[in-house]
Design a binder for these strands. Structure first.
Length: 515
RNA sequence: GAUCUGGUAGCUCAGCUGGUAGAGCAAUACACUUUUAAUGUAUGGGCCCUGGGUUCGAAUCCCAGCCAGAUCACCA
């Protein structure tokens, strides 16, 4: 019955374009001539385009017996000799093919037919040969052997760069680039670089945290209760257990359970899911790193964030200064620090620290901040900050001491009533990190959850739900703990100078393509 | 979810106030043994996003829809 599982896609052939028909035709001709278009045996590579171009000097004895593989990306045929470009994972190099070098015998099929007629741009080939410089001074591989490694049946966009460096016919349509990222990666080398930098960012952070002895862990994505953030979840269903499950919106409550269990420091790069709107800053699935360290507080965590993010910038760029849009952002320590009240006073000139709810609402209205009567004190402060301060914070800056109403999992500030020990790091007008001294008083935590339940009953779809097992864990006792979350996609956008989250996700979420 | 902009050849794009669908690259054929956005000559290639409407006639004007991008609102 297995054939029934084959998807419909295998049977519905799209209408073939002229160029696709020609490529299928060429495939048939290769096979008829006894050339295997999809050979199975290994083709051993001993050099990459970039290395040859960077290291080969004219007259050197190096790279005189190279074996290379990649896609054929351009072709300039001049009768019995041709220039072409080979692209591998490292970049491109020009290759030179002369008929009598690759066909020393009488049979010239390999050059006249296979290379000139039956190969197409995008096909994978393997070559053997030696490096030299042409009369025009370009580093080139003189090909002595040519092998077909894999035939390409669809035409690629042909992007050309002229001698002034100007790019012609760039493949730029965002819809096609995101839906067919493989094509984007083939023809746009800078896209490949962005994703390599994203991985370098993960490596940098992982190394930093591992060196300090923190344990990288994995916690459930499918959760019976969602928690750790204010957001609407995706829901799903487990058939055998016949139970409703949620895709996690955060992993905070699970990592804290591990601190209760006795680990001193745990972290996880966590793919989280939020069933909310999409924008150039929001994808339904995104990645956060969360870190929890026992016996530490938020002040200590601020120092860690500065040190780690500065290191990331240096590991990626060799300097703490990173170009982001029109700005140069310098991650060098120490970063500016403001309490939320100080920040508001600094950017608006108004000291709100002693104001009650009504005074705050009046002040907000005078500043033309949109507020309504359902907003409590914490929400009002948050609105004023968001409207008047956040947009002015380009350089990395810590904002500390948030209203307790916005932070149900954070510890109360010992000397500032109504506030919690929390900070956010803001950079390029956006939050890049959020951290607090974790609330470890189980009685207070239960009370805060109950306040969230009330919000939920009043219609707040993002209010947290009460997690009885998490409270049970806290009742066994959790050491004082500092916790941190960093939005990896947002940080990647800054570190790679991209202004859309889709540029740092290989496969951003898209609506289904029409047939 | 709201507003604006866009969807034409494999790719990048023209196509005016309605009148036989265009260019460059790519492709096909021929020539050319150090070119480089190779060149020269010739040729083929289109569900103009979809569905309605107006009109003698629609890629073009109108309406509805689909997809994308930008901005805004919620959010990381």
């Amino acid at each position: 019955m297995r054939f029934l599982r084959i998807s419909k896609l295998n049977f519905t052939m799209h209408h073939l374009s002229e160029q696709e028909i020609i490529r299928r035709d060429n495939l048939t001709k290769l096979k008829d001539a006894g050339v295997e278009a999809y050979p199975s045996e290994s083709f051993d590579v001993n050099a990459f385009c970039k290395d040859v171009k960077d290291q080969f000097k004219d007259g050197d004895t190096t790279f005189q017996s190279v074996s290379m593989a990649g896609r054929l990306m351009s072709r300039r045929i001049m009768g019995k000799a041709s220039f072409a470009e080979l692209q591998d994972s490292s970049g491109r190099i020009q290759i030179y093919i002369s008929r009598d070098d690759i066909c020393p015998e009488d049979d010239k099929t390999l050059y006249n037919d296979v290379f000139k007629k039956w190969l197409d741009l995008g096909d994978f080939i393997g070559i053997k040969g030696f490096a030299f410089y042409t009369q025009m001074g370009e580093c080139t591989i003189h090909v002595t052997e040519l092998k077909v490694l894999s035939k390409s049946l669809r035409p690629l966009p042909v992007v050309k760069v002229d001698d002034t460096g100007k790019v012609h016919d760039a493949f730029t349509d965002p819809e096609m680039r995101y839906r067919q990222r493989y094509v984007d990666l083939i023809v746009n080398p800078e896209v490949r670089e962005t994703f390599k930098q994203r991985t370098a960012m993960y490596t940098s952070m992982r190394n930093y945290l591992n060196e300090r002895g923190y344990l990288e862990v994995e916690t459930p994505i499918l959760q019976p209760l969602y928690g750790g953030a204010a957001a609407r979840p995706f829901t799903t269903h487990h058939n055998t257990l016949d139970m409703k499950l949620y895709l996690r919106i955060a992993n905070e409550l699970y990592l804290k359970r591990l601190i209760v269990g006795g680990f001193d420091g745990v972290y996880e790069f966590s793919k989280d899911f939020r069933n909310e709107g999409m924008s150039r800053f929001h994808n339904p699935e995104f990645t956060q790193i969360e870190l929890y360290v026992a016996y530490k507080d938020y002040q200590w965590m601020m120092n860690l964030v500065e040190e780690m993010v500065e290191k990331v910038a240096i590991d990626l760029h060799g300097t703490s200064k990173v170009k982001v849009g029109e700005n140069i952002i310098d991650f060098k320590r120490p970063w500016k620090r403001y309490t939320m009240y100080e920040a508001i006073e600094h950017f608006t000139g108004v000291d709100i620290s002693q104001m009650n709810e009504d005074q705050l609402r009046d002040t907000a209205r005078k500043m033309h901040v949109h507020v309504d009567n359902t907003m409590g004190k914490g929400k009002l402060i948050d609105e004023i900050f968001g409207e008047k301060c956040e947009d002015q914070l380009i350089q990395p800056t810590f904002i500390t001491d948030y209203p307790v109403e916005m932070s149900p999992l954070a510890k109360r500030h010992p000397s500032k009533p109504g506030l919690v020990e929390r900070f956010e790091a803001i950079c390029n007008k956006k939050e890049i990190a959020n951290a607090f001294s974790e609330l470890n008083d189980p009685i207070d935590q239960r009370k805060r959850f109950e306040e969230q339940l009330d919000l939920g009953k009043r219609g707040d779809s993002e209010a947290m739900v009460l997690d009885e097992d998490f409270l049970r864990a806290l009742e066994y006792g959790m050491p004082p703990t500092a916790g941190l979350g960093i939005g990896m996609d947002r940080l990647a956008m800054i570190m790679t100078n991209q202004n859309s989250i889709q540029e740092v996700l290989f496969f951003p979420q898209m609506k289904a393509e029409k047939e």
